[in-house]
Amino acid sequence: MTLAARIIPCLDVREGRVVKGVNFVDLKDAGDPAEQAAIYDAQGADEICFLDIAASHENRGTLLDVVRRTADKCFTPLTVGGGVRTPEDVRALLLAGADKAAINTAAVRTPDVVDACAKAFGAQCIVVAIDAKQVSPDRWEIFTHGGSRETGIDAVRFAVEAVERGAGELLVTSIDRDGTRAGYDLALLSEISSRVKAPVIASGGAGTLQHLVEAITLGGASAALAASIFHFGTFSLAQAREALRDAGAPVRDVVGYAP
């Protein structure tokens, strides 16, 4: 038996509501995060990812409350990201019901925070989220602040370093593809997944079931994350599992809750 490929619906949240934008702008409302989480839990999501895309200091209390309400609705592993800067932020999220915390901008600005968080809570609950944009045929660079701020940092090299520092997982988002439904950036995923031991979650660009399959079979990712295609009912999680199974990828046998 083998570790199953994971399909992860992502709840992008702003001010307590699920939203999904095209290239990080033009947000549409897709509902209440706790309600969405309960639906995905019942459908057998392998994990649920919860990203606070506004992530301001003032909103911290609201975020923790939404995480608490969301975690209370499901028995599915929950990764939460957005505005995680310190081990104390990670601790607050874990206490609210998150299983893993995703660190994004802070990992770029002060990479030591990854070491500190992994040391305090274990690598298995620290995810480093990488937002990358292709700048030349063989080079991707990290952009922060929702893709608006350029850093000049090589995304592949950064990914390797993040794992060395203790990241137990990488959430790799292609800014070029995010919201386009044109498919994941498979070259970026392969570059990173072939160089690290930690699992890679593919993000940005899922539009068809074939895209989810390719992330695993061609991109070398352990998990495929998607938002719009699930939120708006284009595809169900069951269809996604079926597509992976048909392609020969290891898939979980989901057992439904007793009534």
Binding site: M1, E169, K197, P199, S222
Partner: peptide
């Protein structure tokens, strides 16, 4: 094989 062992696996 990835490490950490993260995700759904069978327990026999």
């Amino acid at each position: 094989d990835i490490l950490p062992h993260t995700g759904w696996n069978t327990a026999a």
